[in-house]
Computed example of a mutant assay.
Amino acid sequence: MPNVPIWLYFVAFLAVLGPLVFVHEYGHYIVGRWCGVKADTFSIGFGRKILGWTDKRGTEWKIGWLPLGGYVQFAGDRDAVSQPDADWQQLPAEQKSHTFPAQPVWKRALIVLAGPVTNFLFAILIFAAFNMAYGVPQTPPVIGAVEADSAAQEAGLRAGDRIVRIDGRTMDTFNDIQGAVAFNLGKPASIEIARGSERLNVTLRPRIISERDPFGNKSERAVIGIRSDAPVYTAVGPVMAIQTSAAQTWEMVRLTGSILGQFVTGQRSIKDMGGPVKIAKQSGEMAALGIGTLIFFAAFISINLGFINLLPLPMLDGGHLAFYAYEAIRRRPAPPAAQEWAFRFGFAAIVTLMLVVTFNDLGSIGVWDRIARLIG
C-alpha cells in the first residue's frame, strides 16, 4: 500500500482546490469586465488577508487564510454572495453604471453563469490534453469474456455479443457499458444485444461488488460480469480531442446529477457524501500515484464544483440564476423579503450540508473509530 506523507495531503489539496477556485472566480471576473462591471475584490480563500495587492483598475486581489473557496465582490455588492448594497443607487451616475445591480438581468445572469461554465471548460481542456497525449478510448462494446456465476452469464450473454443499448442509451465504446451500470445501485438493466444478424433483448440485475483501492479505501459498484478484449486507443487531433473531452465532461455531469438524485430520493445513503477533508485525503492519494493522476482528479473535482454551484440554492450561483429567471419572466425582481428569507434558508442548508459531510469525512479518516476505542 503506498505510503502518503502528511504534508502531501495539504500540498495536493491546495494544488487542486486553489486553481479550481481561481478558475471559477476568474470566470465571474472576466465576464464582469466584458460587461463593464467593476470588481472591488477578487479573493481566493476567506477570512483575514495574508497576501494582497490592488491593480490599476482598483480591484483588490487577495488570498485569505481559509482556503475553502473564494469570491469576486463587484461594485454595488453588499457582501461576497452578491447581495445588493443598500446605497448603490445613491452613487454618481458614472459609478452607478459600473455596479453589478445596475446591469440588465441578462448581463447579471451571464456573469453568474460564467463561474460554473469556466469550471466545465477547464475540465474539457484537461481531458483534451489527456486525449491528445494518450489517445481516445475506442474499445468496441463487444464482450470478450463472460465471468462465471455473473449476471451476464445468467442472462445468457456470450463472448462476441455486441451490446448496442442499455436502458435505451447507445453504447459506442466498452467504457460506456461500465458507465451505464456502475453507479446505478444494481437496478435491473434492459440490454439490447447484436449477436451476428440477430437482435436480442435481455433484462438482468447487475451485482454490487465491494473493492478496496491501493490505499485501503472501500467502494462499491455494480457490474454485469463481462470483460473486453485488448483496449483500443485512437490518436486524435486537437478538434477531435476537444469534441471527445466535451462528451466525457457531459457524461460526468450526467452521472453527478444521477448520484445527487439518488441522495435526494434516499436511494443512496448520505454517509457516502464527502467534503473538503475527503477531497484533501483523495488529493494526497492521487498525488502519490503521480502528477497525471492528480491532474485528472482535478478535472473531476472541477466538474463537481461547477455542477454544485448550479444547484438552485440561494448563496450558490444557481440560486442567483433562479432569481434572475423570476425577474426575467415577471419583469421585476423578487420581493426583497423573499430574497432575504431565501438566502437565510440557503445559508442554513449549506451549513447543515457542511456539518454532514464533515462528520462523514472525519469518519473516513478513522476519527470516530479512534474516539470509540478510547471511550471503550
Rank of each mutant, 00 (worst) to 15 (best):
Ala114Val: 08
Asp172Trp: 14
Gly115His: 02
Ala133Cys: 00
Leu125Asn: 04
Phe122Asp: 00
Val112Trp: 04
Leu110Thr: 10
Asp176Glu: 07
Ile124Pro: 00
Arg162His: 07
Ala123Leu: 01
Arg165Gln: 15
Val117His: 08
Ala93His: 06
Gln103Thr: 05
Ala180Trp: 07
Gly179Glu: 15
Arg108Cys: 11
Phe130Ile: 13
Pro140Arg: 03
Phe122Ala: 15
Leu121Arg: 06
Phe127Asp: 03
Pro92Lys: 03
Lys96Cys: 13
Ile143His: 03
Gln153Glu: 15
Thr118Pro: 04
Leu125Ser: 11
Trp106Tyr: 15
Asp176Arg: 05
Asp167Val: 01
Thr170Gly: 05
Lys96Met: 13
Ala123Pro: 00
Glu147Ser: 14
Phe120Asp: 00
Gln103Pro: 09
Ala129Ser: 08
Pro116Lys: 02
Asn175Trp: 07
Val164Tyr: 04
Glu154Ser: 10
Pro104Glu: 08
Ala93Leu: 14
Thr170His: 12
Pro137Ser: 07
Met132Val: 07
Phe122Val: 06
Ala145Asp: 11
Thr173Ile: 11
Ala152Lys: 04
Asn119Pro: 06
Ala114Thr: 06
Phe130Trp: 03
Phe130Val: 13
Ala155Asn: 06
Pro92Cys: 06
Arg108Phe: 03
Trp106Asn: 01
Asn175Asp: 15
Glu147Phe: 12
Asn175Gly: 15
Glu154Ile: 02
Phe130Ser: 02
Val142Asn: 01
Thr173Arg: 13
Ala129Glu: 05
Ile177Gln: 01
Ile126Gly: 01
Leu121Lys: 03
Ala133Lys: 13
Pro137Val: 07
Phe120Gln: 00
Thr139Gly: 10
Val117Thr: 13
Met171Leu: 12
Glu147Cys: 09
Pro104Arg: 12
Ala159Val: 00
Ile126Asn: 01
Val146Ser: 02
Ala159Tyr: 09
Val136Gly: 07
Glu154Lys: 11
Asp176Leu: 09
Ala151Phe: 01
Ile124Asn: 01
Ile163Arg: 05
Ile143Trp: 00
Ala151Val: 09
Pro116Thr: 07
Ala159Asp: 12
Gln90Asn: 15
Pro92Ile: 10
Ala152Leu: 09
Thr99Phe: 05
Val142His: 02
Glu94Cys: 06
Glu94Gly: 07
Leu125Tyr: 08
Asn175Ile: 12
Glu147Asn: 12
Thr173Pro: 10
Asp176Trp: 07
Ala159Leu: 05
Pro104Asp: 05
Tyr134Ile: 11
Gly115Met: 01
Ala145Gly: 10
Lys107Val: 11
Asp149Val: 08
Ala155Ser: 11
Ala129Gly: 12
Pro141Arg: 01
Ala129Asp: 02
Val112Gly: 03
Phe122Met: 14
Glu147Leu: 15
Ala93Asn: 09
Leu91Thr: 04
His98Lys: 15
Leu110Glu: 08
Thr170Lys: 14
Gly115Ser: 07
Arg108Trp: 10
Gly160His: 03
Thr170Val: 15
Ile126Val: 15
Lys107His: 14
Arg169Pro: 00
Val136Thr: 07
Lys107Asn: 03
Asp176Val: 10
Leu110Val: 11
Gly160Ala: 08
Ala133Asn: 11
Gln89His: 13
Met132Ala: 02
Asp167Lys: 05
Met132His: 12
Phe100Trp: 11
Arg162Pro: 11
Gly160Ile: 04
Ala102Ile: 11
Ala102Thr: 09
Ala123Asp: 04
Lys107Trp: 05
Leu110Met: 13
Gln95Gly: 03
Val181Pro: 10
Leu121Glu: 02
Gly168Ile: 12
Trp106Arg: 04
Asn119Thr: 08
Val105Asn: 08
Asp149Thr: 14
